[in-house]
Design a protein around this nucleic acid. Structure first.
Lengths: 110, 110
DNA sequence: TCTTTTGCTCTCTTTTGTAGAACAAATATC
DNA sequence: GATATTTGTTCTACAAAAGAGAGCAAAAGA
């Protein structure tokens, strides 16, 4: 692959990281994914994807101390980088452009 | 994979098939891809993807006799099915929903 | 007939997508 | 305090998608 292309699942996970803002971590991302898209994923799949996104420079991560709730361990929290944001907007531009050429699809306004 | 998820490249190719309408065939799709997205692809990659889309029921294909131009061989022309259209709109809905929650991205109207 | 052009098929490798077991640390409970 | 329970991440594997390009086939031109 050319290396700069964002895979389908990578893109969704990156969007979720953006939506969650300051509290984007493995399990939370998995839950938000299910809530937002109805799509379930194994936790390993989410973490593998986050690691790949980090290798590509689309997210950064750091450890954050746990909360006082039962079992509340420290989390690895992720946040989108400028590069990640650019990848998302590039991807969006391509899709919006193609959608606009397909009036047959019942595609409305965002 | 779950089988019903449209890969990133699959989605772009499916969109191009829709845009091209009646004249969507291998080489033409490759050219249009480059024209629309600036992204080049080997012809084998395009055909492999078209075959996968057909296996999933997102496109149909048939042979069409060649033109009179030099070397104009018969082509395998593709067209989107209702299922393909549905997959595209589903994918679009998820993205539009997530984009709308990311005001940080300079995302405007479609 | 032989060359050139258009076009598809076949084979192979790399990257993504997916799952789940294993492991670690914190609180709860007795 | 020993053990169970809950929240998390990491590690290991494998399947599917992405991608490249050689090779083959057919049509037109010379």
């Amino acid at each position: 692959m050319k290396g700069d292309v964002l895979g389908e699942f990578e893109e969704i996970i990156l969007l979720i990281v953006g939506v969650l803002g300051q509290d984007a971590y493995g399990l939370g991302i998995r839950d938000e994914l299910e809530k937002q898209t109805g799509r379930s994923a194994a936790i390993g799949a989410v973490h593998a994807t986050l690691n790949r996104l980090q290798e590509k420079g689309y997210v950064e991560s750091g450890m954050k101390e746990g909360t006082q709730e039962r079992g509340g361990r420290r989390k690895r929290v992720f946040q989108m980088t400028g590069l990640g944001k650019k990848a998302l907007t590039d991807s969006k531009d391509v899709r919006v452009n193609l959608w606009s050429q397909l009036p047959d699809l019942n595609i409305g306004k965002v």
